[in-house]
């Protein structure tokens, strides 16, 4: 059997971890045991940058994370999931299939020999983004009153500053304590992670933001894939397709279960109207476009994707 190393930053019992194990199991079955896919969870083989370098090297065969981390090789790919531009996942997925987005993946393959397995965004994360806060956020104007936990990401910093939030740089593992001490009073997260990280214990208000949409392309070492017999390539593609369907189901189930369970524990869900927020962000996009900060054709590709849906 051919051993393939699958690296991820997620723990095995996280929703993502379950999807990855499902993929590994199915790949083994569908290839009649040819493909021995070993999942290395929780950054066991390294953090983001180190894993990508090993993917290029071939000591790791697959890595699944949000695609914008490919900006190591293709800086424009930080625009693969533009914040507050698409109100629905369908529109966003259409955008990721635009010629522009495809050209970014193409560049990653040319530069680093790394290519997504199957449909890039078939495996779902999230399924949507939420804002967890100590005080209720009922409209986007309330964002001006929060101190948001931030991570080193220039794009996210620019967006949340534009919306008027105060920002506090905190590592993900430090966030709980930061909320407890008041260093920050709000944090953004995929819905499916809210319960396991326990942030709601310190910040009992949750609102859906649809900040951006998340898919987990299975980035793989292209040469390793091309060297496989066709039968095993097909098995991997099929297993990936099934993992995509399983992930959509699992994330949706987790999110709805999460809401019911947390409400029972006294957490309040506020439904902030999103239209004014997205309208406000249009000025941000217009400014950045005028300043030449967006990739050429990006807004056009976004418009086309929205029109198609």
């Amino acid at each position: 059997a051919e051993t393939w190393r699958f690296a991820t930053k997620m723990p095995p019992d996280s929703p993502e971890g379950k999807v990855f194990q499902f993929f590994a199991d199915r790949a083994r079955e569908l290839s009649d045991g040819d493909m021995d896919v070993q999942v290395y969870p929780s950054e066991q083989l390294g953090k983001e940058a180190a894993v990508l370098e090993q993917l290029e090297l071939g000591t790791i065969n697959i890595y699944a994370e949000d695609a914008f981390f490919l900006q190591k090789w293709v800086p424009d790919i930080k625009w693969i999931a533009p914040p507050f531009l698409f109100q629905s996942r369908e529109e966003w997925v259409a955008y990721t299939n635009s010629d522009l987005a495809r050209s970014w993946f193409q560049q990653a393959e040319e530069i680093a020999g790394v290519r997504p397995l199957g449909e890039p965004m078939a495996v779902v994360r999230g399924p949507y983004r939420v804002l967890i806060s100590k005080a209720p956020v009922k409209g986007y104007e309330d964002i001006r009153d929060i101190t948001l936990r931030m991570y080193p990401d220039e794009l996210a910093i620019s967006v949340w500053k534009h919306l008027g939030a105060e920002l506090a740089m905190l590592a993900w593992t430090e966030t709980y304590q930061g909320l407890q001490s008041g260093l920050a009073n709000a944090v953004t997260s995929p819905a499916a992670l809210v319960e396991s990280m326990g942030f709601y214990e310190q910040a009992p208000y949750i609102t859906r933001t649809n900040e951006f949409w998340q898919g987990l392309p299975f980035m793989m070492n292209a040469a390793a894939f091309d060297a496989l017999p066709e039968k095993d390539q097909k098995a991997l593609l099929r297993a990936h397709e099934e993992a995509g369907a399983y992930s959509a189901e699992l994330m949706e189930e987790n999110a709805s279960k999460m809401r019911a369970e947390l409400e029972a524990r006294g957490v309040t869900f506020t439904d902030m109207p999103l239209d004014p927020l997205f309208a406000e962000m249009e000025t941000w996009y217009a400014e950045h476009d005028a300043a030449g900060a967006l990739p050429a054709g990006m807004l056009a590709a976004a418009e086309a994707a929205k029109a198609a849906k």
């Binding site: 370098e53 190591k72 090789w73 220039e154």
Partner: peptide, 14 residues
């Protein structure tokens, strides 16, 4: 060759 990509907020190659 490998440690490419600009470090966020530091602004230099890795």
């Amino acid at each position: 060759a490998r440690q490419r990509g600009v470090l966020e907020l530091v602004g230099v190659q890795r």
